[in-house]
Amino acid sequence: MSETATTFRLERPREGVVVLTLDRPGRGNAMTAAMFAELEATARRLDREPGLRVLVLTGAGSTFCAGYDLADAERLPELGALGMLDLQESAARALAGIRGVRVPVIAAVNGAAAGGGLALALAADIRLASPRAKFVPSFVTIGLSAGDLGTSWLLPRLIGPAAAAEFLYSARTMGAEEAERTGLVNQVVGEDELLDAALEMAAQIRANSPGGVQLSKRALQANMEASSYAAALELENRGQALLTRTDDMTEALTAFREKRAPVFGGR
């Protein structure tokens, strides 16, 4: 799999774990049209990678992601309505691609996550933050809507509709401690330990059956949109029935009887 990109780098610190580091530190890891295209293409490739178990997102330097690069934003009026729609849809596909990767995605938020950077953090399944992390819904401060890149759908489901409304309308900055208290992030860890904590969490996830984790993610995401309890149960039933046919389920039961750790093969 080609891993060449100009706006981020990919590393594999442990088997089955990929770390995607946004790598434009001189611009606060701000987003560009090139980044959207590369994120979308990379998400598709990673989703097809058989051995992938966890994806970790973080930012180079002192910022997670400053949102859309304002240097590029100066050219937006030149695009016209359809050109702007193409760019917006490219950005949406990129973040939907990251969120849709079949394995868990952990965001290690090492600094400011503003605008589209906030949306990218929200697209992860789990968020860890350093004490200097801050979340800035800057959309309305530059004349845009906070209904951007999934923010208006994901944020209320994490912190509640009223809290999301106050946060988005005021465009105030939320620090790491408040983010942990409200449920926006799972945990705040020391700055020097952030990536290690994300990798440790990845290791805990990786110790479990690949199929079980992947179908758990599918159920959690799908049932956020389920129309009823009955629809949620139907999806869960199909997933469980499928997993009982796997070699990993047999291995898990055998290991339990033999009082040893299971060795999962993802089959």
Rank of each mutant, 00 (worst) to 15 (best):
S2A: 04
T4K: 09
T4V: 13
P13Y: 05
R14H: 05
R14S: 10
R14Q: 14
E15Y: 03
V19Y: 08
V19F: 12
T21W: 09
D23R: 03
R24S: 03
R24L: 03
A30G: 15
M31F: 15
M31E: 14
M31P: 06
A34H: 01
L39Q: 10
E40A: 15
A43L: 05
R44V: 09
R45F: 01
R48F: 00
G51D: 15
L55V: 15
V56S: 04
V56K: 03
G61Y: 08
G67L: 02
G67T: 02
Y68L: 05
D69M: 00
E74A: 11
E74I: 01
E74D: 12
L79T: 04
M84C: 02
L87P: 05
A94C: 12
G97H: 00
G97A: 00
I98M: 11
V101S: 12
V101D: 13
R102G: 06
A107S: 09
A114Q: 12
A114Y: 04
G117M: 00
L118S: 03
L118Y: 08
A121Q: 04
A123K: 07
A123D: 11
R127T: 07
R127G: 02
F135S: 07
F135T: 06
V140C: 08
I142S: 01
S145T: 15
A146E: 05
G150V: 10
L154N: 01
P156G: 04
L158K: 07
G160W: 03
A162G: 07
A164R: 05
E166M: 04
E166K: 13
S170C: 08
S170N: 11
M174I: 12
E177H: 07
E180N: 02
V185L: 03
V188G: 03
G190N: 08
D192Q: 12
L194R: 02
A197G: 15
A197L: 09
L199P: 10
E200P: 04
Q204T: 04
A207Q: 11
N208C: 14
N208F: 12
Q214G: 14
Q214Y: 06
L215Q: 08
R218Q: 13
R218M: 14
Q221Y: 07
Q221E: 14
Q221N: 14
E225K: 14
Y229L: 13
L233G: 10
E234W: 15
G239F: 05
Q240G: 13
A241L: 14
L242H: 12
L243I: 02
L243C: 10
R245W: 12
M249H: 07
A252N: 06
L253D: 05
L253V: 01
T254Q: 13
A255D: 06
E258W: 04
K259L: 12
F264A: 09
G266N: 09
